[in-house]
């Protein structure tokens, strides 16, 4: 079985600054892959190269079997993306946002209508269906963003800090949604700052200064670093050396 994502010495430079420095890894199909790192470690930049928003400066990578240099538009058919910056239209209603993105992904009209029902029902957002997105609570916005990012049934979904700033209950619900998507065979590539969330992942990589400093199953990493939690692992790796 082909891996969902493979990278080989993937690099991105902005002038003299190397944001992502020769990272090499594989993400298996159906896996929940945690992509960890401090602010500015290069997580978002790496993710943007993989989903075709940013052109790599060097190295190789393939997403869903397509090359990140030559086949970005093919990649885009097979992925979903939820960016760090909230990116639904605040001046459209919940329903209109779903309809719009369904249309952009080329879903047939019947399918869009079905998704509108299912999505709003599934999220328990009936009361908000015709409310402008700007007036619904953040947690619901994030859940809606995720649902819209996967409404076209992509093979891989990229989530960039999807739970930033939301309450613990909503985070829990969010991860239930992620598990559900993974159980249906979707590959989930997720960045986070919450170390408890790192424990939920099948495998995690930890980026430090543009490089991958560690990559394994959470349990294996804890053993390797002799740490009680992922939090300790993270601190050991990212804390500035004295």
């Amino acid at each position: 079985m082909l891996p969902a994502i493979t990278t080989d010495k993937l690099t991105k430079r902005f002038g003299d600054f190397t944001a992502v420095d020769q990272i090499t890894f594989e993400v298996n199909k159906g896996e929940i892959f945690g992509f960890l790192g401090a602010n500015g470690a290069g997580k978002t930049t790496a993710m943007r190269m993989l989903n075709g928003l940013s052109r790599p400066s060097g190295g190789q990578a393939a997403v869903a079997g397509f090359d990140v240099y030559r086949e970005t538009e093919k990649i885009k058919k097979h992925i979903g993306y939820m960016s760090q910056k909230f990116s639904l239209y605040e001046d459209l209603t919940v329903r209109e946002n779903i309809q719009f993105y369904g249309g952009i992904y080329g879903l047939p009209g019947k399918e869009i209508r079905r998704q509108v029902q299912e999505l709003i029902g599934g999220l328990g957002m009936q009361a908000y269906a015709n409310t402008l997105v700007k007036s619904i609570p953040l947690g619901w916005k994030q859940k809606l963003s995720f649902s819209i990012a996967i409404m076209h049934r992509p093979e891989i979904v990229f989530l960039d800090e999807p739970t930033g700033g939301v309450d613990p209950i909503t985070r829990r619900q969010f991860w239930e949604m992620i598990y559900k998507a993974a159980s249906e065979g979707m590959t989930v590539f997720v960045t986070t700052h919450y170390m408890d969330e790192a424990e939920y992942c099948d495998r995690v990589s930890i980026m430090v200064d543009g490089r991958i400093a560690a990559l394994d199953r959470p349990r294996a990493l804890k053993e390797q670093f002799g740490a009680g939690s992922m939090n300790d692992v993270f601190l050991q790796l990212t804390r500035p050396k004295p």
């Binding site: 989903n51 075709g52 885009k76 993306y81 990116s87 239209y89 952009i104 992904y105 080329g106």
Partner: peptide, 10 residues
Amino acid sequence: GTIEQINVTP
């Protein structure tokens, strides 16, 4: 930032 969401679609 919505342009990103558009750009990541086909």
